[in-house]
Amino acid sequence: MDDIKQVVLNSDTLQDDPDGFADLLTEDVNLVNIAGHRLHGRETVRAAYRKAMASQLAQVRTRIEIHDAWLVRPDVAVVSATKHVSDERAEPNAPLPDKGAVTFVLARQDEQWLIASVQTTPVK
């Protein structure tokens, strides 16, 4: 499970590196962020992250706290975590929640674990 958890932790570390982050994703990844925006496909996510890093969103930092990880099948894993959000934008156009429940689904492809799906739901 450590290798699976490490991919999730790497996604946190690489949150300001669109290419590094995208390299952790499957080609057909599905991502729903804490603001409710749905992105489908690695290249769509890469482009959205590049755009975000060139905007005020570069001042939003998150930290992942992993709670549990388990195998659904030998090549599919689920990671349950909390996303802690620090919004340092001077003038946010829309406030973000401080915390979200996040679920990662990872798939083993070519001997490595990749993120196939991420769903973040705001927590009050």
Results as ranks from 00 to 15, higher is better:
75 D>K: 05
67 H>R: 13
92 P>G: 05
20 G>D: 08
47 A>R: 12
103 T>H: 11
61 R>Q: 12
16 D>R: 09
21 F>W: 14
101 A>P: 00
56 Q>I: 03
21 F>N: 04
108 R>D: 01
75 D>I: 02
97 P>Q: 10
69 A>R: 03
90 A>E: 15
124 K>I: 04
44 T>H: 11
6 Q>R: 15
5 K>C: 03
105 V>E: 09
44 T>L: 06
60 V>A: 08
81 A>W: 01
122 P>E: 12
51 K>A: 15
93 N>G: 11
120 T>W: 00
118 V>Q: 11
51 K>Q: 13
89 R>S: 09
48 A>T: 10
27 E>Q: 13
78 V>L: 15
70 W>S: 11
86 S>W: 04
113 W>R: 02
37 H>F: 13
98 D>L: 07
19 D>W: 03
74 P>F: 07
53 M>P: 01
85 V>W: 04
66 I>A: 06
123 V>F: 08
48 A>G: 02
12 D>R: 01
45 V>F: 08
93 N>D: 12
44 T>S: 11
45 V>H: 05
71 L>A: 08
93 N>V: 14
91 E>S: 14
45 V>T: 04
77 A>W: 03
124 K>C: 04
98 D>G: 14
14 L>I: 08
37 H>K: 15
118 V>A: 04
25 L>F: 03
36 G>R: 10
33 N>R: 04
40 H>T: 13
36 G>Q: 11
102 V>I: 15
83 K>P: 00
88 E>K: 09
43 E>D: 15
71 L>I: 00
34 I>W: 02
5 K>I: 02
98 D>K: 15
6 Q>P: 00
94 A>L: 14
6 Q>W: 01
6 Q>K: 15
27 E>H: 12
16 D>V: 02
77 A>F: 04
116 A>G: 10
51 K>M: 06
83 K>S: 13
100 G>T: 07
93 N>A: 11
14 L>T: 08
15 Q>W: 07
49 Y>P: 00
117 S>M: 08
52 A>C: 01
116 A>P: 08
24 L>D: 08
17 D>H: 11
59 Q>Y: 07
36 G>E: 10
80 S>C: 02
81 A>Q: 02
11 S>E: 04
71 L>H: 13
60 V>F: 04
30 N>K: 11
117 S>A: 13
18 P>R: 07
33 N>Y: 03
75 D>E: 12
20 G>C: 06
105 V>I: 13
85 V>T: 14
46 R>H: 08
88 E>I: 00
22 A>H: 10
111 E>D: 15
49 Y>I: 00
83 K>G: 09
119 Q>L: 10
22 A>P: 09
83 K>T: 15
90 A>L: 12
14 L>P: 07
92 P>I: 11
122 P>Q: 09
34 I>K: 01
26 T>F: 07
45 V>Q: 05
74 P>N: 14
28 D>V: 06
88 E>N: 11
21 F>A: 08
9 L>P: 05
106 L>M: 09
85 V>C: 05
110 D>F: 06
113 W>S: 05
98 D>Y: 07
15 Q>G: 05
96 L>F: 11
11 S>T: 14
103 T>C: 07
57 L>M: 14
3 D>M: 11
11 S>Y: 06
44 T>M: 10
5 K>Q: 12
35 A>E: 10
118 V>P: 00
48 A>S: 14
4 I>C: 03
116 A>Q: 07
55 S>Q: 02
43 E>T: 13
105 V>A: 10
92 P>Q: 06
53 M>H: 10
